[in-house]
């Protein structure tokens, strides 16, 4: 129990710290690398929640593919330090921070005050945390959510065609001359 708690607080510290670094670093490459750190942390949090397969997919898709693309594009641009990384205007900036903070406070209030979320267990039952649920996941995905799955397939096809079209259009990386 205590080791679980220590693990959670460590991971929470890592994810929040690196998430903060994403926003605060003026060099976008450091932001991207911090975001990778956040995603690895979130993946570890998925493991603590017993979602092993999702944790692996998070590593492969987010950390291994999406963020590699981001870092690659940033390295090609070679922006180094940004002179104007943040928005102009002290007052508007402060307003934005304050409103985001109020939003956070609102969510926290809802979470802590409305503690009668009757449909959830407060404390996890330790029995089912080590069960391999990937088989069940597949069954549910291809039975109950088959329409969403097929729709995603179509979406990915559209995205692939669209991205190629973007790259080949005027001004793209593979523009026709």
């Amino acid at each position: 129990m205590i080791s679980d708690a220590l693990l959670f607080w460590f991971l929470a510290f890592v994810t929040v710290g690196s998430g903060l670094a994403v926003v605060l670093f003026t060099n976008p490459i450091y932001s991207a690398l911090s975001l990778v750190m956040t995603m690895v942390g979130v993946s570890a949090l998925f493991v603590t929640l017993g979602a092993y397969f999702i944790a692996g997919v998070q590593l492969i898709v987010y950390a291994g593919a999406v963020m590699v693309l981001f870092v690659m594009v940033l390295m090609l641009f070679d922006l180094k330090q940004e002179l104007m990384a943040f928005s102009r205007g002290q007052i508007t900036g402060a307003l934005k921070v304050i409103s985001a903070g109020l939003f956070l406070g609102l969510i926290f209030g809802i979470i802590t005050k409305r503690s009668n979320l009757s449909f959830v267990d407060k404390i996890p039952s330790p029995a089912d945390i080590n069960i391999d649920n990937s088989k069940e996941l597949g069954t549910v995905l291809f039975a109950r959510h088959i329409f969403g799955f097929e729709a995603l397939g179509v979406l990915l096809l559209v995205i692939a065609v669209g991205t190629v079209a973007l790259a080949r259009s005027k001004g793209g990386t593979h523009a026709k001359h």
Partner: peptide
């Protein structure tokens, strides 16, 4: 929630 608000900021 904290992570979400960080992204929002």
């Amino acid at each position: 929630a904290i992570l979400f608000v960080l992204g929002l900021m």
